[in-house]
């Protein structure tokens, strides 16, 4: 593969070749876990504790 053939799809192919299915599954599982934690952070206690950060960062979910 020459440098000029470096495209978005070739990057995805490289990642597929590099990562084993187990690594890929681990990544997906971890992403799912993070998404779950983000939902959990809507709980009032965690939500209130992040009060200053949410305002300072301009994140809307408050």
């Amino acid at each position: 593969m020459r440098a000029t053939n470096d495209t978005v799809s070739s990057r995805i192919e490289i990642a597929r070749a590099e990562l084993t299915p187990i690594q890929f599954a681990t990544g997906l599982l971890f992403a799912a876990a993070i998404a779950f934690v983000l939902v959990f952070l809507q709980e009032p206690l965690a939500h209130d504790a992040m009060h200053n950060f949410r305002h300072a960062a301009g994140i809307t979910c408050h």
């Binding site: 965690a46 504790a49 992040m50 009060h51 200053n52 950060f53 949410r54 300072a56 960062a57």
Partner: peptide
């Protein structure tokens, strides 16, 4: 709130 906000940042 202050500590958790720092950590969240």
């Amino acid at each position: 709130t202050a500590l958790v906000s720092i950590g969240s940042g």
